[in-house]
């Protein structure tokens, strides 16, 4: 099957890949580029486990075709920490036990970062609605909300 040759920037690195038209950006990340941090929970945009940013915009990578990534900048969970230095959200997730099985965690972190970029001082309700696109079945969301609120406070102070 004929494949498209796509060039994109992923977590700051220039990357080339080949993909079929029907392959999603999530398929490309996971299967072709071995960036398995984004997860496929549903494939239909209903769980948010595959959340990444595309030119700075939060998207479900299962709802983007690989071919649509041409020339775009993509950021995934693998690029969130600065070397060994965890992002404040990652640190607060660990601290507040905001994860259990962890399958939804990469998507939630990417969403939370995007949320705080737009709204650095959210209310609890704004965080709950802002993260409504990310399903978590283990935590009941409580510690996730706490971690995001706490990280927001720390990031505002920094």
């Amino acid at each position: 099957m004929k494949k498209h040759h796509i060039s994109a920037t992923i977590n700051g690195d220039e990357v080339d890949f080949l993909c079929e038209t029907s392959e999603t950006l999530l398929d490309v990340l996971r299967d072709d580029l071995n960036l398995t941090g984004a997860k496929e929970g549903c494939g239909t945009g209903d769980c948010g486990a595959c959340s990444v940013t595309l030119d700075g915009v939060l998207v479900c990578s299962c709802l983007v075709l690989g071919v649509e990534a041409e020339g775009k900048e993509i950021e995934t969970i693998e690029g969130m920490a600065d070397g060994d230095e965890l992002h404040p959200l990652q640190r607060k997730f660990v601290e507040h036990i905001a994860l259990q099985c962890g399958i939804c965690t990469p998507g939630l972190l990417i969403s939370a970062r995007s949320l705080l970029e737009k709204n650095p001082d959210p209310t609890e309700e704004e965080v709950r609605f802002g993260l409504a696109g990310n399903l978590c079945r283990c935590t009941g969301y409580q510690n996730i909300i706490k971690a995001v609120m706490d990280a927001a406070q720390e990031m505002r102070g920094a």
Binding site: T36, G37, A38, I77, A81, Q90, F93, V94, P106, L109
Partner: peptide, 8 residues
């Protein structure tokens, strides 16, 4: 298990 989970 947490750090591996928050870094993907």
């Amino acid at each position: 298990d947490a750090v591996d989970k928050v870094t993907g």
